[in-house]
Design a protein around this nucleic acid. Structure first.
Lengths: 253, 253
DNA sequence: GAGTGGTCTAGACCACAGA
DNA sequence: CTGTGGTCTAGACCACTCG
């Protein structure tokens, strides 16, 4: 099949190209490693090492006993402007996510849970609540044909969110979270974001996103404030690195 | 030395901890792989695989014949607010970078080149010039004790920058680029940025940043515009992923 | 049970840097 | 020349999934 002996980087490159070219579509299963080894005239160890590269890049997700699933999603999903401020505020990206995923022939899925919990210290500080204070948290997990693409957690002080529309379970809040908060008398006028482009996932994140522990993630922490300077919403986003592109625009003084 | 047999992830974890704890400081050289193999009671193959993990994370840079150099830099350099808008505009981050690097006991270095070149299509489009039009480009490479930390390229239309202070070589432009452009009659009022948190480097980038091809990078494309909507400056930043943290604040409408 | 990926070894050869 | 990391093999055993 392949005339020359290839190195594991070259095997990875070949598979990478096949995947991006659509020869192995997203959510499909790659041929087993022994078969690929034969195709490329290499040992299975070598193919396995090539696979580790692709897994770390996020193109692929090997699972013991089940085979290796293609987790690469074409640029459409990452691409520009969709995650811009206006869209995000309008509907929490739900619509944009759904149409992006459908556009590449996959099935968008949402999992939403609403609960009361003590936020991590970083979030508590941003919200200005005590480290042991219960808050309301709305968690979402977005998937494309079973591939986890992003997780969100939106935190609100109980004082604000208790027994409001925010505490209702269900996939959509009419007009979005910021609109709902505004109706409750907490209109946000400024927001700040901290972006960590790449870090290793926590164990919990790796498990929920179904990625290997060495696959890095991008984290965005969004804090919304009212005109009085009160932080009323902290939303954290964690996605496997490369599933996100971020755009923003700002005035220069 | 180590009672139990460790897996390569565990060996990597042990080394990771040692590095972060300062047992192997930045820019120092790790013990050779055979020695580590003996320490951990494992084969060299295993240690080598652990090293691949650390290299992909960017904690370490193994070089044939020379040994494995620690390239991890403590959070101080990444940490918040330093790369915020105000600082970046003030002095192109030069001061902040120098003091960050010195604070961890390393030597900051800058390499600056100024030349005329045809920009990549993406930059040409952003500047609104033809794809074959010569532009002025100021390139910088920032290093900490020989470890490349970041590369920048600032592009300007020749029409604006020809024979101005922007074309002078040398490390600093008094007051920064935006100030210089303002003095030339091109005051910027808005900027937009596109952030690609994680992607594989081009060959050229991997070479200039001295990273392996599978070590991902973060890219920021910054476009500055005048009140008339003319793009007068495009600055691209590429850094090994995890050397950057980004913060910004914006008004909500 | 059969087939998948996950891990590991022992040893080998190579490319490169430096004394 | 020696010692470094880079690559590769052949084979082994394990853990997991599914029929």
């Amino acid at each position: 099949m392949h005339p020359q002996r290839l190195g594991y980087r070259e095997i990875a490159a070949a598979l990478r190209q096949d995947i991006r070219a659509g020869r192995y579509p997203p959510a499909s299963v790659l041929p087993p490693e022994p078969e690929l080894a034969q195709q490329y005239g290499a040992s299975r160890s070598l193919v396995n090492r090539a696979m580790s590269l692709l897994a770390a890049e996020g193109l692929v997700r090997p699972r013991q006993g089940r085979g290796t699933i293609v987790t690469w999603l074409p640029p459409m999903l990452h691409s520009a402007a969709r995650y811009s401020r206006t869209t995000r505020e309008r509907d929490g990206n739900r619509g944009a996510f759904d149409s992006d995923v459908k556009a590449i022939g996959l099935e968008p899925q949402h999992e939403i849970t609403v609960e009361r919990a003590v936020p991590p210290a970083e979030v508590a500080d941003a919200l200005g609540v005590a480290h042991d204070e219960l808050c309301l948290v709305r968690r979402r997990r977005l998937l494309a044909s079973g591939i986890p693409v992003r997780i969100n957690a939106s935190w609100f002080p109980l004082e604000i969110a208790e027994s409001t529309v925010l505490e209702e379970p269900g996939p959509v809040i009419n007009g979005g979270i910021k609109s709902a908060l505004s109706n409750l008398g907490y209109r946000q006028t400024t927001a700040s974001e901290r972006i960590v482009p790449s870090r290793l996932p926590t164990e919990a994140e790796a498990s929920v996103l179904e990625i290997s522990p060495e696959r890095s993630v991008t984290e965005i922490v969004h804090v919304g404030q009212t005109a009085e300077g009160r932080s009323v919403e902290v939303t954290t986003t964690v996605a496997p690195a490369h599933y996100l592109v971020i755009e923003h625009e700002f005035p220069l003084t």
